[in-house]
Computed example of a mutant assay.
Amino acid sequence: MPAPWPWPNCQFPILVKPSDRSGSEGVKVIRTSKEFNSILNHQISRNLVIEEYLEGPSYSIEVIGIAGNYQVFQITELEMDGDYDCKRVLAPVELGDQLIREFEKITLKLASDLSLNGIMDVETILQNGKLKVLEIDARLPSQTPTAVYYSTGVNMVE
């Protein structure tokens, strides 16, 4: 699965985030080893995710299904805010057919590998023409069903 490189297999800048929080809460971009050592000294008791920092547009796709029968929905673009995480969901997106097919393939494989029974979304970031999986949320998202509905007429709740 294409994903950010974990520390120490990547270079600065890196992303340090608590594994027990949601969204951008507690997330820090670290640009130097001095800054990194300072963070580690203060958060030694926490479980941290430390990985390559990626910049680029962020995309999301929902997948729903049961017992190996899965359906993906429209890909949406996520606009982020430093204080509130996702501030807006846009649809449709200009991603290109090849990247759309790649994203759908990744999502369907994750759903199958996890034996999904329900709904989840997969978030990616596009950096240097490549999609990298950032996270999976196993829940009905708050904004995406509305964006998909008004863009396509498809009601994923139904």
Rank of each mutant, 00 (worst) to 15 (best):
E35V: 00
R21N: 09
S19F: 07
W5G: 03
G153E: 05
I136R: 07
A111D: 04
S24F: 08
M120Y: 04
Q43N: 15
R31W: 06
N155D: 12
G153Y: 04
N155M: 03
P141T: 14
W7M: 03
E52F: 03
I75Q: 02
E79N: 13
Q11E: 11
A111T: 06
R88K: 12
M156Q: 10
P141S: 14
A91N: 12
E94M: 12
S22L: 15
I119E: 14
L99Y: 06
S22Y: 15
N9T: 06
D85C: 13
S38V: 08
P13W: 02
G96E: 03
H42V: 06
D121R: 10
Q143V: 02
E79H: 14
E102C: 02
K28H: 15
S112L: 12
G23I: 08
I50P: 00
Q11C: 04
E55N: 15
V157G: 11
Q74C: 10
P13Y: 03
L54Q: 00
V16L: 05
L54Y: 00
N128S: 12
V122F: 10
I39C: 12
E51L: 11
V133S: 04
K34Q: 15
L15P: 02
K34L: 10
P57S: 15
D137E: 12
M80A: 00
I106P: 05
I61H: 00
D113H: 08
I125Y: 03
A91G: 09
Y70D: 08
I119H: 14
Y84R: 07
N69C: 12
T124F: 14
S60V: 01
P92V: 02
Q71M: 07
M1V: 13
L95H: 02
P6F: 15
Y59R: 01
D83Y: 10
I39A: 07
Q71E: 03
V154C: 10
L110I: 10
L99C: 04
Y149Q: 13
M156E: 03
N128Y: 08
K130C: 01
T107W: 02
C10P: 02
E55L: 14
S60A: 06
Y53A: 11
H42R: 11
E62S: 11
I50N: 01
A3F: 07
L95P: 02
N117I: 14
Q74D: 02
L48Y: 10
E35Q: 13
E123A: 13
I119F: 10
E104S: 07
E55S: 15
T32V: 03
A111I: 07
P57C: 12
L54I: 01
A138P: 01
R88V: 00
S60L: 00
